[in-house]
């Protein structure tokens, strides 16, 4: 075999194996091992931080939903409170109105009775005044002093007459 392209060279063969094994050992120990470990650690870190971010996002979403719920509940409550208070106010107003009407009625009735009483008393007074006047007039007219008994009888008589005429 003279062709150097296919010349067997066991020395080179063994040198290659030795060189490669030494290189493999050194690189595996000083480069690939630490690199692979670093790579794995970094991937783990990235995975964890992604997980954390995802969790935070979920938490945020949950809080968001919660706050939305709370706001909705508060709004509903406020509405119901407003509605309730409106009803209550209506009731109160109705009550007040009713009471005022009743009071007014009582007042009016009292006033009416007062007026009636006052009228009756006034009528009574007028009647007495009329009797007295009539007496004075009559006594002046007849110029004669009657006895107390006659007088009383006369008054009584006149009163009955007046009553009769009035009725």
């Amino acid at each position: 075999m003279d062709n150097p392209l296919i010349q067997p060279d066991p020395g080179l063969f063994i040198w290659t194996i030795l060189t490669f094994l030494v290189l493999l050992f050194l690189l595996a120990k000083f480069a690939w091992g630490p690199l692979l470990k670093a790579l794995e650690e970094r991937q783990e870190t990235i995975r964890k931080s992604l997980d954390d971010a995802d969790q935070a996002r979920q938490e945020l979403e949950r809080l968001h939903q919660e706050s939305a719920q709370i706001i909705a509940a508060a709004r509903g409550e406020a509405q119901s409170i407003v509605a309730k208070s409106r009803v209550a106010a209506d009731t109160v107003r109705e009550d007040l109105k009713q009471k005022a009407k009743e009071e007014a009625e009582v007042l009016v009735r009292g006033a009416q009775r007062q007026i009636q009483l006052e009228t009756a008393r006034a009528v009574q007074q007028i009647r007495h005044e009329v009797v007295d006047l009539s007496l004075a007039v009559a006594s002046k007219l007849i110029k004669k002093n009657l006895t107390q008994e006659d007088n009383d009888a006369l008054i009584q008589d006149s009163l009955t007459q007046i009553d009769a005429s009035q009725n």
């Binding site: 066991p10 020395g11 080179l12 063994i14 040198w15 060189t19 490669f20 290189l23």
Partner: peptide, 17 residues
């Protein structure tokens, strides 16, 4: 019987490695 002399290719192996 194996010649372990450093030829050009052995040297290149070492250079590369």
């Amino acid at each position: 019987g194996i010649d372990f002399s450093v030829t050009k290719h052995v040297m290149m192996l070492w250079l590369v490695a």
